[in-house]
């Protein structure tokens, strides 16, 4: 049930500080869209504004429009809780609920959405989600163990399983592999390639090879100086960004001649 996201003239604030300015972009369904750029350029902030997680921070707010298949996410009668149920998120550091077992971690979102789910149905969904996250074979014998007993890479796949268990329309990933070793990173990247058949995926990454490997489209964020808002400098198919970008700044960043 992948959906398309249209962002227009988005400004994102922390209190009175304008962190991201004037982002207009269309994110295609059933594809991976990568956001790259230097630290502090606002790509994570932009990502968090898509599922309305940005406004969780005190004083944080957003101006502009984000529309998902015709549904205005920041419309007057749009409930942020509903938005977050449709748009899943995976964070930079794996964050399974430490007090819950592996099973309960995956079931957590399902239980929020549907209080009276039958045990058998729940079992099936948990298994399907864990299989979807390529984790089932590693954990099927210890579903009752705490989620924190897994390795970092396994924990991150557990978090992906938790996010896809509720069948979201869009999956946001904020540097999902930056805290992981190369083998776990590869596992996550393979997983993204599988998941894009079913979901719209937006990933923030510092790793340009990763963006080149997994994404169809890439957006380059940059800021002109400290205290200045971040902007979306260029948004193009990944091949074009990495071979023949329109903007000089993009080319400088990608070729390492940045700053």
């Amino acid at each position: 049930m992948a959906k398309r996201i249209d962002v227009s003239d988005l400004n994102v604030y922390y209190g009175s500080f304008l962190a991201v300015e004037g982002v207009t972009v269309s994110i295609e369904p059933r594809s991976v869209t990568a956001l790259i750029g230097p630290s502090g350029c606002g790509k994570s902030t932009f990502l968090r504004s898509i599922n309305r997680m940005h406004e969780v921070l005190p004083g944080a707010r957003v101006e502009g429009k984000i529309v998902m298949d015709g549904q205005d996410l920041y419309g007057p009668d749009s409930d942020p809780v509903d938005v977050r149920r449709q748009i899943g998120m995976v964070f930079q550091r794996p964050n399974p609920f430490p007090t819950m077992s592996i099973y309960d971690n995956v079931a957590a979102g399902l239980r929020l959405n549907n209080k009276k789910m039958k045990k058998g149905d729940l079992d099936d969904l948990v298994e399907r989600s864990l299989r979807g996250a390529n984790l089932w074979n590693e954990v099927k014998d210890r579903l009752g163990r705490p989620g924190s007993s897994l390795s970092g890479g396994q924990q991150q796949r557990l978090c992906i399983a938790r996010a896809i268990a509720v069948e979201p329309d869009v999956l946001l990933m904020d540097e999902p592999a930056s805290a992981l070793d190369p083998i776990s990173t590869l596992a996550i990247e393979d997983l993204m390639t599988e998941l894009k058949e079913r979901f719209t995926i937006v990933i923030v990454t510092h790793n340009m090879q990763q963006a080149a490997r997994v994404s169809e489209s890439t957006g380059f964020f940059n800021l002109s100086g400290v205290g200045q808002p971040g902007r979306l400098i260029e948004f193009n198919p990944t091949e074009k960004i990495f071979s023949n970008p329109d903007e000089k700044a993009t080319e400088d960043y990608i070729s390492g001649r940045f700053g």
Binding site: N51, M53, V81, R84, F97, T99
Partner: peptide, 28 residues
């Protein structure tokens, strides 16, 4: 930890559900 609070919120938990999933178990 903010990580745990955000994990619950990002799943579409309301404030109270977030408290039940993240805050109370952590503090029990």
């Amino acid at each position: 930890p903010t990580l745990h609070r955000e994990a619950a919120l990002a799943l579409g938990a309301t404030r109270w559900e977030m408290i039940r999933m993240a805050v109370l178990p952590y503090g029990s």
